[in-house]
Computed example of a mutant assay.
Amino acid sequence: MTTRSCPCGLPESYDGCCGRYHAGACAAPTAEALMRSRYSAFVMGEVGYLLRTWHPRTRPARLELDPGMRWTGLEILGTTDGSAFHATGTVTFRASFRGGSLHERSRFERVDGAWVYVDGEFLS
């Protein structure tokens, strides 16, 4: 059991927040929750989770994370749809890392009832 705070920025423990999604205990209920859990998966090196939550039509065959990358924070800038009542949604965010940040609008869809990442558009 991990009691440290979740990398996604919410005031919960990793196990009580994104860790439960990574472990497969349940699925992220919204596009934003999936976005946060995917950010945490990058921080924690959870490649299997990243691939499982990637849309089958856009998922890469493999994914290698840069072991030197140090993610330092996530800021959700906006969401469109993506709730339990939607089939699609977008999340605009800024993910900071040592030396810079990534600003993206990500698209999500439901596949067999579960939210998955489709693709993203880098923003300036």
Rank of each mutant, 00 (worst) to 15 (best):
1 M>F: 07
3 T>E: 09
4 R>P: 04
5 S>L: 15
6 C>V: 09
13 S>W: 01
14 Y>F: 15
14 Y>N: 07
18 C>D: 11
18 C>K: 11
19 G>I: 04
21 Y>W: 05
23 A>G: 08
29 P>K: 02
31 A>Q: 11
31 A>L: 09
32 E>Q: 15
37 S>W: 06
39 Y>R: 06
44 M>G: 05
45 G>V: 03
46 E>K: 14
47 V>P: 07
48 G>Q: 13
49 Y>G: 08
50 L>I: 15
51 L>S: 10
51 L>M: 13
55 H>K: 09
55 H>G: 10
63 L>N: 08
63 L>K: 10
63 L>E: 08
66 D>Y: 02
68 G>H: 11
70 R>T: 14
71 W>Q: 05
73 G>S: 04
74 L>A: 05
75 E>G: 04
75 E>P: 00
80 T>K: 14
82 G>Q: 07
83 S>R: 03
84 A>C: 07
85 F>N: 14
85 F>W: 05
87 A>Q: 15
87 A>G: 13
91 V>F: 00
91 V>I: 06
91 V>E: 05
93 F>P: 00
94 R>M: 03
94 R>Y: 00
95 A>H: 03
95 A>T: 11
96 S>V: 03
97 F>G: 02
98 R>Y: 02
99 G>H: 04
99 G>V: 05
99 G>Y: 01
100 G>T: 12
102 L>A: 12
102 L>P: 04
103 H>C: 05
103 H>T: 14
103 H>R: 15
105 R>A: 08
108 F>G: 03
109 E>D: 07
113 G>K: 09
114 A>C: 08
114 A>M: 08
116 V>Q: 13
118 V>N: 06
123 L>W: 06
